[in-house]
Nucleic acid binder design. Structure first.
Length: 567
DNA sequence: CCTGCCGGGTA
DNA sequence: TACCCGGCAGG
């Protein structure tokens, strides 16, 4: 996190330091993920957008990095654009000290905001920038603008205040971020005016306790950091994205929805959260970052899906790649994008007879929800059930088909042989092929939902033997037609192979087999004939006799099915 | 009745 | 989980 933030600093610093770099570059710099950790980044230049190290970094840095500032700056650009830059330049020109960027900012702030400015946080600067632009000259603005500026500052404070609280809220609010930016711009205007009154009051308070304000500022700045970058990126697509975002945000999951009521809060909260959790500097990027963290390389379908679901869910109900792409455009983009870099991540539907592969979790979830779960109407609602029916597939550069083929090809024996894999959600999913693979694996087990496999278990530890031995190998016993599996093979594997739905206790030989049978293929026959036919071969007891009980296999000792002499 | 071992109890 | 055992049931 810090690293990224720090990384950004340089860019920011360049921006500020450079006096007035082109807006576009700035945005790009902000928006772009930090190239690498640069703790040493010039402290003065810019602060990291992320709040995480609130306490750690110098107050100033935090302030500078404050999202508000960035955001404001962005807005200014949007609204005023050149005007702002001009102002900035003018500033520099006006103020000789230009040498030290921070100083400059600080001073400005001081000038602008009385109390708040004390630290010289950039917040003020932001405020100044934002509000100042309106007026041709700062001086003019200050008089009248001052109020406005303060308002801005207060507003920020308020915002971050929320953030601090919001932090508590889950990342689910992140979606709000999206909204926020949009809302921010608009809200900023409206809200600011509305809040102006409050702000005034707050201002009074601020004067009372400077310390408090400072703290707030820090917080705010830290919280605010994120938005700006995001915003910058958004600016580019604002027109297009805005509408989409709004729609998506509206359609987002409940969690997401709630925030919208208070865009500021939600935004701040989400940002803040994003910052600490993820390295992303801006809210926008934060999205990508979180996803990475959650499922960095190997996406674990359940967790990752769940955690991110909220975000993705917003995507339109459309099914298929189109939808995925759309979602990418909006906010999901970061995730896929990142993955795409080194490897391509696809989401494959595990539903039987359905091999649908989408490039976004949201897409696959929707697909499952709509097509398999029949929840067309509840596009935005997901209880997480979908997670069980799709898996992530990573493809280095291979085509999806290849990836699928590689995964699917598991031979029945293999799949059976490696029961341990089943327990693991990921592996199980990946292994259990949905449509294509199913043809081969379409055993009774596989037919049922993948989860069925989990049910399989060994009755007794002693019975369950180490998987090492040939799990799948079934051998025909002398006895006759029936085959028995090596005792070592775990029941699970065992069941899988021979068990034909219809036929079950083949007769005598495989005691364990039968046992497993009952467990696995319970449906057909209840637990009626659980009792094994009874092994015919010699058992430890017979072989060694009671005298040598110590020589018996443990199973025999425990009066369990003999492991040593299997029929 | 012998034997195998299931199902359940105990530590 | 490891161990033990009552008791069922096939032979």
């Amino acid at each position: 996190m810090q690293a990224r933030r720090l990384a950004k600093r340089p860019s920011l610093g360049s921006r500020r330091g450079g006096a007035a770099p082109a807006p576009t570059p700035e945005a790009a710099a902000l928006g772009l993920p930090p190239p690498g950790p640069s703790p040493g980044a010039a402290p003065g230049s810019w602060r990291p957008p992320l709040p995480p190290p609130r306490g750690t970094g110098p107050p100033r840095a935090a302030a500078a990095s404050s999202p508000v500032l960035l955001l404001l700056g962005e807005e200014d650009e949007d609204e005023e654009g050149a005007g702002r830059r001009r102002r900035a330049r003018g500033r520099l020109a006006e103020k000789p000290r230009g040498g030290a960027e921070e100083d400059d900012d600080d001073e400005e702030e001081d000038e602008e905001v009385v109390v708040e400015v004390v630290d010289g946080d950039e917040d003020e600067e932001d405020a100044e920038e934002r509000f100042v632009p309106l007026g041709p000259g700062r001086a003019l603005l200050r008089g009248p603008a001052r109020g406005a500026v303060k308002v801005g500052g207060f507003k920020r404070e308020m915002t971050f205040t929320f953030q601090s609280e919001d932090l508590k809220h889950d990342s689910s609010k992140k979606p709000s971020h999206h909204m926020f930016p949009l809302a921010m711009e608009e809200d900023m205007k409206t809200v600011d005016t509305k809040k102006a009154n409050r702000i005034l009051d707050q201002e009074k308070e601020n004067t009372r306790s400077i310390c408090l304000l400072e703290q707030k500022r820090k917080v705010v700045s830290s919280n605010i950091d994120v938005p700006p970058a995001r915003k910058s990126s958004e600016e580019l697509d604002m027109d297009k994205v805005t509408a989409a975002m709004v729609l998506t945000s509206l359609s987002t999951s409940p969690l997401v929805r709630s925030p919208p009521v208070r865009p500021n809060e939600g935004l701040s909260g989400s940002w803040k959260e994003g910052a600490p959790s993820s390295s992303s500097s801006s809210g926008y990027w934060s999205w990508s970052a979180p996803s990475d963290q959650s499922n960095p390389s190997t996406p674990s379908p359940p967790l990752s899906a769940d955690s991110f679901k909220p975000f993705r869910s917003p995507a339109p109900p459309d099914d298929g790649i189109d939808e995925a792409e759309a979602s990418n455009l909006l906010f999901d983009e970061p995730i896929p994008r990142k993955r795409k870099n080194s490897m391509k991540v696809m989401f494959k539907c595990l539903w039987k007879n359905c091999g649908k592969v989408l490039n976004t979790a949201a897409g696959i979830q929707k697909h499952i929800r709509a097509i398999h779960l029949g929840r067309v109407g509840e596009s935005d609602y997901s209880d997480g059930e979908e997670d069980f029916y799709y898996t992530e597939i990573k493809l280095n550069t291979d085509s999806v088909a290849e990836g699928l083929s590689s995964m699917a090809p598991l031979s029945p024996s293999q799949s059976l042989a490696s029961p341990p894999t089943f327990p693991v959600p990921d592996s199980s999913r990946t292994e259990t092929p949905c449509a294509k693979t199913d043809t081969k694996l379409m055993t009774p087990l596989s037919r049922s939902a993948p989860t069925t496999l989990y049910l399989v278990h060994t009755d007794h530890a002693y019975q369950a033997t180490p998987p090492v031995t040939i799990p799948g190998s079934a051998k025909f016993t002398p006895n006759g037609s029936s085959f028995s599996i090596s005792w070592q093979s775990p029941p699970v594997t065992f069941t899988g192979i021979p068990v034909s739905p219809t036929h079950h206790h083949p007769v005598g030989s495989g005691e364990q087999r039968q046992h497993a049978h009952t467990v696995l293929s319970s449906p057909p026959r209840g637990t009626v004939s659980l009792r094994k036919p009874r092994g015919e071969g010699k058992k430890c007891r017979k072989v060694y006799g009671m005298e040598n009980r110590d020589m018996w296999c443990t199973a025999c000792r425990w009066k369990k099915a003999c492991q040593r002499f299997i029929d």
